[in-house]
Amino acid sequence: MSPETPLLIILGPTASGKTHLATRVAYEIGGEILSADSRQVYRQMDIGTGKDLDEYVVNGVPVPYHLINIRDAGDKYNVNDFQHDFADSYQQTLANGHIPIVCGGTGFYIYALLKGHANDTVPVNESLRAILESLSNEELLAKFLNSDSRYHALADISTRKRLVRALEIAAYLNEHPETDVDFGAESVTYTALLFGLNPTVETRRERISNRLMTRLKHGLIEEVQNLLNQGIAPDSLIYYGLEYKYVTLYLTGAMTFEEMRTKLETEIHRFAKRQMTFFRKMEKDGLIINWIPDEWPESEKIQFIIARYREFKSGNAGNMSV
């Protein structure tokens, strides 16, 4: 059963301007931000995760936010933790009489909110399915038995359809080892209206490169060094990926500064591309994302989102798109 108040979701790849836009929308309509970012949950990991907490003050008015700075650096946090924490934040937002606005780039977390059960949060892989469907039942079973993943002990392979899905889930978990899923967990699903930001590749790349240089000059290295000084193991920081992985490798002598900067820039660009790929998979799975043209003035973006959300909430909206 879905909660009655729908979510307003603003998603997009890194450096697309999600937080800036979401906080302005929240300011206009009395909203609270519910972050869907897998790394912003950690305290003292501010610069590398791009929290941009100054964005949460609009015209001198603080915009309430949730699911940021709720875990200590060094902890592990997964999609099941997120689903449970999100439910509490959602209820708190409603109790405050405000509108829940989800903002983030962790597509897997957003997908989980809309699909519910953890088994459903692993996206469909059409290319893999095409390959698997060409195999006989015996070949599928042999492929499953000759492979391994965290899901194997839990998989239901009683029918061909379930066997194909089991192989699909196993492949996803092997390709995304950072994804921690409790397949026994049940969760609430939410009704939502989704808006997406997707600047051109050239614009996105320029923003990512400029932002990285700014962060390196203004505290990113010191932030990671401070975490190491507190006794957090290098492997724990490397686990978080991107900025924390490569700056840690630099600080521990595994890379030169230039090697770190070059590799990190490349990996952030690749990360943004993977984010967009996941959002496209969400659309293939039936989730409608209203993509907002990057060239629109900010005021037009804000008013468009507010108008469409009000229509959606009142039940008068259909399958809307820009």
Results as ranks from 00 to 15, higher is better:
residue 300 E to V: 14
residue 296 W to H: 10
residue 301 K to V: 03
residue 138 E to S: 14
residue 138 E to M: 13
residue 22 A to L: 05
residue 63 V to K: 03
residue 99 I to V: 06
residue 80 N to P: 01
residue 314 S to V: 00
residue 7 L to G: 10
residue 37 D to C: 11
residue 159 T to I: 12
residue 248 T to K: 04
residue 225 Q to L: 15
residue 103 C to Q: 03
residue 97 G to T: 01
residue 86 F to N: 03
residue 267 E to D: 13
residue 38 S to Q: 04
residue 46 D to H: 07
residue 88 D to I: 12
residue 281 K to V: 11
residue 112 A to R: 02
residue 54 D to M: 14
residue 314 S to C: 00
residue 127 S to Y: 05
residue 246 Y to C: 03
residue 61 V to R: 14
residue 283 E to S: 04
residue 26 A to Q: 06
residue 52 D to H: 07
residue 281 K to D: 15
residue 52 D to T: 08
residue 167 L to D: 02
residue 276 M to L: 13
residue 39 R to C: 03
residue 298 E to M: 12
residue 297 P to G: 00
residue 70 I to C: 04
residue 253 G to P: 09
residue 242 L to P: 02
residue 9 I to K: 02
residue 19 T to R: 08
residue 288 I to A: 15
residue 259 E to C: 02
residue 108 F to H: 06
residue 117 H to T: 10
residue 171 A to S: 14
residue 314 S to R: 12
residue 25 V to P: 02
residue 141 L to N: 13
residue 190 Y to P: 01
residue 38 S to P: 06
residue 209 S to R: 15
residue 239 Y to L: 14
residue 294 D to K: 03
residue 289 I to R: 04
residue 198 N to A: 11
residue 268 I to S: 01
residue 267 E to Q: 15
residue 177 P to F: 05
residue 230 Q to W: 12
residue 241 G to M: 05
residue 48 G to R: 00
residue 117 H to M: 10
residue 10 I to K: 04
residue 11 L to I: 14
residue 77 Y to L: 06
residue 121 T to M: 15
residue 48 G to F: 04
residue 11 L to T: 11
residue 61 V to G: 02
residue 296 W to N: 13
residue 131 I to Y: 08
residue 209 S to A: 15
residue 9 I to V: 14
residue 36 A to I: 01
residue 214 T to M: 14
residue 99 I to E: 11
residue 191 T to M: 13
residue 243 E to V: 07
residue 181 V to Y: 04
residue 284 K to M: 14
residue 274 R to N: 13
residue 42 Y to G: 00
residue 275 Q to L: 11
residue 231 G to D: 12
residue 138 E to R: 15
residue 69 N to K: 09
residue 51 K to L: 06
residue 152 H to L: 12
residue 228 L to R: 06
residue 141 L to G: 04
residue 242 L to W: 04
residue 77 Y to D: 04
residue 280 R to A: 14
residue 38 S to H: 08
residue 84 H to C: 06
residue 116 G to E: 01
residue 217 K to L: 13
residue 193 L to S: 00
residue 293 P to C: 08
residue 125 N to T: 10
residue 159 T to R: 13
residue 21 L to N: 01
residue 18 K to M: 10
residue 291 W to I: 00
residue 6 P to A: 09
residue 147 S to F: 05
residue 210 N to C: 12
residue 135 L to Y: 00
residue 137 N to V: 07
residue 246 Y to S: 07
residue 20 H to W: 06
residue 42 Y to D: 02
residue 263 K to W: 08
residue 265 E to N: 15
residue 31 G to Q: 03
